[in-house]
């Protein structure tokens, strides 16, 4: 694919070609500031060019899909390319991001379970904020759907986490552009209130409502294409009340899981399911396990278990098709989910 086919101004095209950027792939790994320097244009202009280019390469991918044998089929190579280029939602805890391969992946259903007070809701709120991080800062610049079945979502807390997120972006901004005169170009024009406005919050009070909202999500997301994350906090609560017919419960949950998987794939969004833990009675003793039973464990692509290790909170990857099983400590701070204090000290000492 040639740069000459991009819908940009002739002078920009000329500058690109004369600086050696002739193909689309040559633009895929260049940063806006580098491009601005090479072309001697403003950073904003460079960003615009990159946006146009990335949109074009996305189109290419779908074009290729169309000429496949079966409509919608992809080769493994295409899928790998796509996965490598996909942006993940950071958890704001780099240790946790490391074991997750960069964060929570789109197109996948990720289940997070743990005891009360371990930080499931905190992680849920954090992800609903982080999915909105602008593309300039390596984010998805998306919106979030938050389905609250337990009433634990606190607006104050979301506001706090959003404030900290903006502060972090500002810090990153001043650090990156310390000696650039162009620092005005990428000023953050975001307010914590904007973050809250980009969270679509559903409050669910029964399992009937839960099923109804999950069925409705497809319509909602197709009307709000910028939704990139769906958090359900928790998937469990309404399914733990007195289901006489356990087979019915399994069927309902199975249907819900399939819908969510399909949603994640079709709209390229991350689905995060929070789950409770329960004790399971087997062989004469009680053991701790995630709720909803064995058949439910097939419902998600990834499964993360949060647990206490002494006084430290830890996350463990229990199931993942691509990541190896690993654990990482994290902390819940006033600013949101972060690295453990003891850990960052260790890093500083080195």
């Amino acid at each position: 694919m040639e740069v000459s086919s991009l819908p940009i101004s002739a002078s920009q095209r000329g500058k690109l070609i004369s600086s050696g950027y002739t193909s689309l792939s040559s633009l895929s790994s260049v940063s806006p500031s580098q491009l601005a320097q090479d072309l001697k244009i403003s950073e904003n202009e460079a960003l615009e060019i990159l946006k146009v280019a990335s949109r074009r390469s996305e189109l290419d991918i779908t074009d290729n899909g169309a000429c496949a044998i079966v409509n919608g089929a992809q080769t493994a190579w295409d899928m790998l390319q796509e996965e490598e280029s996909s942006v993940r939602i950071t958890t704001s805890c780099s240790d946790l991001d490391d074991i997750l391969g960069g964060g929570i992946n789109c197109k996948e259903v990720t289940e997070v379970g743990g005891v009360p007070g371990i930080g499931k809701t905190q992680l849920g709120i954090q992800l609903a904020i982080n999915v909105q991080i602008p593309a300039d800062y390596g984010g998805l610049e998306g919106k979030a759907v938050y389905i609250d079945t337990e009433g634990s979502f606190m607006v104050e807390r979301a506001f706090q986490i959003a404030e900290a997120c903006i502060e972090d972006m500002q810090e990153y901004n001043s650090f990156l552009r310390k000696d650039s005169k162009d620092s005005q170009a990428c000023q953050i024009r975001k307010d914590p209130k904007d973050f809250l406005d980009n969270i679509f919050y559903f409050r669910i009070c029964s399992y009937t409502e839960q099923i109804a909202v999950i069925n409705y999500l497809e319509k909602f997301v197709s009307e709000h294409k910028d939704v990139k994350a769906v958090v359900i906090d928790s998937i469990t609560f309404h399914f733990r009340q007195d289901f006489e017919d356990m087979a019915l419960r399994t069927r309902l949950l199975g249907g819900m899981a399939l819908k969510l998987m399909k949603l994640a794939k079709t709209f390229n969004l991350a689905i995060i399911l929070l789950n409770q833990v329960t004790t399971k009675y087997s062989e004469g003793s009680f053991q701790l396990t995630l709720a909803l039973g064995d058949s439910w464990s097939h419902a998600c692509t990834n499964r993360i278990i949060l647990y206490w290790n002494g006084n430290e909170r830890c996350a463990h990857i229990d199931k993942s098709p691509s990541m190896r099983s690993a654990s990482a400590p994290y902390a819940v701070t006033g600013r949101g989910i972060r690295n453990c204090a003891s850990n960052s000290k260790r890093v500083k000492m080195m």
């Binding site: 606190m154 607006v155 104050e156 979301a158 506001f159 209130k193 809250l196 406005d197 969270i199 679509f200 919050y201 559903f202 409050r203 669910i204 409502e209 109804a212 909202v213 069925n215 409705y216 909602f220």
Partner: peptide, 16 residues
């Protein structure tokens, strides 16, 4: 009652 009625947007700024 429709599923869209369960959406609360924009969020209230404060919990009482």
């Amino acid at each position: 009652m429709k599923p869209e009625d369960l959406l609360r947007h924009p969020l209230p700024t404060q919990t009482s």
